[in-house]
Design a protein around this nucleic acid. Structure first.
Length: 370
DNA sequence: ATGACAGCGCATGTAT
DNA sequence: ATACATGCG
DNA sequence: GTCAT
């Protein structure tokens, strides 16, 4: 999710109303969703957003996920802001930018960089943790304990790879490849291969590539495919073990040598590694991260919405839903009546119907690149 | 001043 | 063997 | 770190 996301391509905004008068309220990137055009780009405050992004990574790898998302939110606000920021005070009007970040912005504008960042960059332990965390399966905790044992580099990791979990070993094996983005054209090929396998397993299976691919971007960090079937209902979610679409799909793709390694495999979710088969006349392909998710049929459009993202779009849409008295999740939407959830599920036959329920204008996938 | 910031599937480790 | 907790994405 | 309570 698409959750999950660190899409490098981003889009800038043309704002709807930007009188920067002294409104006491901040320009919320919230109430009406800001408009974003997929084509135009570039952010007049690249220096600021780059530095704040670096800070966010340090926070995440120190185990401060909320500070991480706080920085990320500020960065998104700034990227969406159509002017060159000239002071911390100006920036502080933006949603997600508070006193501390404003102060940092002043320092950056004045001196060209940030002491806090410099000192963290000189901290051998912190930078080592940042390196190790780039391996999928190694998070802040594992990275920290490794560094305490004196393991500080990717090369060090190779020496002790037998002590790593399977997931981490695969992450190490494809370390460089997983940091490369997947071109849209390539995802289109995988899409067909997967569809063919699914059809031969059961023609009633439906599937859709989600994530930034579905939002129309020219490249993605990984490949994220949602799967459902009319007979796989919410009611059956308990008996999921008997509904082994994912297992069959994985088996089929391995036979075709499309799937080359697994990270995890359960009845509802697969995470693994795929690669196009090279057609003798060279052309070497790159190993890619791919996920499959099996979603109950009644939840399909909720899953589609959720897994298409962006994360920020989801946050804002959930917020609007809440204001209208609904909780929106990956599986369903519920009217909250006197604090208690309603048990009867609301059924929809499209994403648009979900927008309708909460009285929100429909945003097609390529308008969800917040 | 203080809590929320999403919730969940899978792998792995620990407790019972 | 089963139940629960943690890390991770 | 930021926002809402």
């Amino acid at each position: 999710m698409a959750g999950k996301r660190k899409d490098k391509d981003n889009s800038s905004s043309d704002d709807s109303s930007s009188e920067d008068d002294i409104k006491k309220k901040k320009l919320k990137t919230n109430t009406p969703l800001i408009k974003v055009s997929v084509t135009s780009n570039d952010n007049k405050n690249k220096q600021l957003t780059d530095i704040l992004t670096e800070l966010s990574v340090f926070e995440k790898n120190k185990g401060q996920v909320h500070r991480f998302t706080a920085y990320r939110k500020a960065v998104l606000s700034i990227k969406a802001y159509p002017h060159e920021i000239k002071s911390g005070l100006e920036a502080q009007k933006l949603d997600g930018v508070g006193a501390k970040i404003a102060k940092k912005i002043d320092e950056i504008l004045k001196t060209g960089d940030l002491k806090k960042l410099k000192s963290q960059n000189q901290d051998e332990t912190l930078t080592a943790i940042n390196q190790l965390s780039r391996v999928t399966g190694i998070g802040p905790q594992k990275a920290k304990s490794l560094v305490e044992e004196g393991i500080k580099t990717i090369d060090d990791l190779k020496k002790i790879k037998n002590t790593l979990t399977h997931h981490q070993q695969i992450g190490l094996k494809y370390f460089s490849e997983f940091e490369q983005r997947v071109p849209r054209k390539e995802i289109e090929v995988f899409e067909k291969l997967v569809s063919n396998s699914l059809f031969s397993i059961d023609p009633n299976i439906i599937s859709q590539v989600c994530g930034s691919y579905r939002r129309g971007l020219e490249s993605s960090g990984d490949i994220d495919i949602l799967i459902s079937h009319p007979n796989f209902t919410l009611e059956m979610k308990d008996k999921k073990k008997t509904f082994n679409i994912i297992e069959k799909l994985v088996e089929s793709l391995k036979k075709k040598h499309i799937l080359i390694d697994d990270l995890s495999l359960g009845p509802l979710k697969y995470m693994g590694v795929c690669k196009l088969v090279s057609t003798e006349i060279s052309e070497q392909h790159i190993a890619r991260r791919i996920d499959f998710k099996l979603i109950p049929y009644e939840s399909y459009y909720f899953g589609l919405l959720h897994n298409t993202g962006s994360d920020e779009f989801n946050r804002q849409m959930r917020g609007i839903a809440l204001k209208q008295g609904f909780t929106l999740s990956e599986y369903s939407i519920n009217k909250l009546s006197k604090g208690v959830k309603n048990e009867t599920p609301i059924l929809v036959n499209s994403e648009k119907e979900i927008f309708d329920i909460i009285g929100m204008e429909y945003y097609p996938p390529n308008k969800r690149n917040l």
